[in-house]
Nucleic acid binder design. Structure first.
Length: 421
RNA sequence: CGGGGUGUAGCAUAGUGGUAGUGUACGCGGUUUGGGACCGUGUGGUCCGGGUUCGAUUCCCGGCUCCCCGACCA
């Protein structure tokens, strides 16, 4: 994409109404627009990042047999009443509205009930199981207090998955696969070393649920972590009994601020029983199915990535989450020869399937570099008169600041996308 | 939801009971051109409703907004 066509602009000033690093940088660099407290629009650059993260999640969900769908934003009052979760006293994040024809609807803050209910149409025999579904949905939650930029909004994108299995064995199999898939996701977006499978409140069906907590100063949770044992315990369940169960001592654990980037939850048969989601067994008996639900906050994950990798100059995207792989920055744009050279390189890079943002603007070097640092694309390729004389480009790694001078041939060797076979 | 604060131009800010100033961004002219350059010039603004007053952006009341702390986060 040509940067001269990008409608967003960067800003030098820090927005007065943002104190979180993620929102400050995402706004300054032109990734998001704040519509109201806790509600952000995703602009072209922000949408590219969001789609990158979604694609990673999609690949991992697909790999374990998940099927993608999309449920509705409007939800049935009667359905939620059936599971006693319509009442504002029980669920305090509901947005609700009225139908003109009469009756109330809710705006989806979760989709466990609707998806479980819907599956009554499609699951009738043990032969239909197991099945895992997932979606990317904008969740609407009437939070009393939005905060931490995109990390805790009233409107946010979540990947939620739901599994349906005949028995505990099959369920556990899916659950463990899901755990592995989640770890792959966090590894791929560069958070592998700082993300822990965390023991947290289990609810009615199991002693624990598992959260995926990433070490992050801007996070809202507190965990006790042992790096050596790879164990993390959410402060909310931390006690002697839990320590004994997990065979770990208090002294081994370090108290750390974390952000919850995902969770996986086992409902047992209870949820299906509440909803009347039954299948026939081999012997003709009707039994409720075993359900699990699995979430990843896509937009929160984006915020966590910004928080963790940004430096004093701006955002630093890990390669797999970056809106583009290369930031092609051309200097000396008043020189037609240089401009043609850069235009040609841009065309070739695109043809080679490399994702590139081309800063073709007629601006000074300082401004272009400052913008490039702020936007945070992993590699910057500088085209200049100086380089032209030497027949090379300068490649700067955003994360480390490392500078290399490479020929066009070397550039393509380094960045050309592998041919899909 | 309890407590505290806030609101002036696209953004960031100053100031005042009597013509609202600066930076940035933006337009135009010129000098520059490898780390947000400079000179000149121009466009653009007091959250909403009520009250006090000859006159309110300023003072008072109410509302809304946004931010922070706490609570909440199944």
């Amino acid at each position: 994409m040509r940067q001269s066509h990008l409608f967003t602009k960067t800003r030098k000033e820090i927005p007065a109404d943002e104190t979180s690093k993620n929102a400050e940088l995402l706004i300054r660099a032109g990734y998001v627009h704040k519509e109201m407290a806790g509600v952000y629009a995703y602009l072209p650059l922000g949408l590219l990042v969001q789609e990158k993260i979604k694609q990673i999640v999609r690949e991992e969900m697909s790999a374990l047999g998940g099927q993608e769908l999309i449920m509705t934003a409007l939800q049935s009052k009667e359905l939620w009443e059936r599971t006693h979760r319509w009442d504002d006293e029980v669920v305090d994040v509901w947005f609700k509205s009225e139908l003109k024809a009469g009756g109330e609807v809710g705006f989806g803050w979760s989709h466990e009930e609707p998806i479980g209910n819907m599956m009554k149409n499609y699951l009738s025999s043990y032969k239909d199981l197991p099945v895992t579904l997932y979606q990317f949905q904008t969740k609407l939650r009437n939070e009393l207090r939005a905060k931490s930029g995109v990390m805790r909004g009233r409107e946010f994108v979540m990947k939620d998955a739901y599994s349906f299995a005949l028995g505990e064995g099959d369920h556990n199999d899916i659950y463990e696969k899901m755990k592995g898939a989640y770890l792959n996701v966090f590894k791929r977006v560069g958070l592998g070393n700082d993300t822990y499978v965390t023991f947290a409140t289990g609810g009615a069906f199991t002693q624990f649920s598992h959260e995926f907590q990433t070490i992050c100063a801007a996070g809202e949770d507190t965990c006790y972590i042992s790096k050596e044992k790879g164990i993390a315990i959410n402060a909310e369940v931390m006690n002697d009994e839990v320590l004994n169960t997990l065979e770990v001592t208090r002294e081994e654990l370090i108290e750390t601020k974390t952000a919850e980037v995902g969770n996986i939850f086992n409902f047992g048969r209870q949820k299906a029983e509440d909803l009347g989601l039954m299948v026939k067994t081999e012997t003709g008996e009707n039994i409720p199915v075993w359900m699990g639900s699995y979430g990843i906050g896509i937009t929160r994950l984006m915020g966590v990535i910004v928080e963790k990798f940004a430096d004093e100059k701006g955002i630093v995207w890990p390669e797999e989450a970056a809106p583009f792989t290369l930031h092609l920055v051309t200097l000396n744009t008043d020189d037609a020869e240089i401009r043609d050279w850069a235009d040609g390189l841009y065309a070739n890079l695109k043809r080679a399937g490399i994702e590139v943002l081309y800063d073709d603007r007629d601006a000074r070097a300082g401004e272009k570099f400052a913008d490039s640092d702020l936007i945070g694309i992993p590699y910057r390729v500088v085209v200049s008169k100086k380089g032209k004389e030497q027949g090379s480009f300068e490649v700067v790694t955003r994360a480390t600041g490392e500078v290399r001078n490479v020929s066009e041939e070397e550039l393509f060797q380094d960045f050309a996308a592998p041919i899909e076979t």
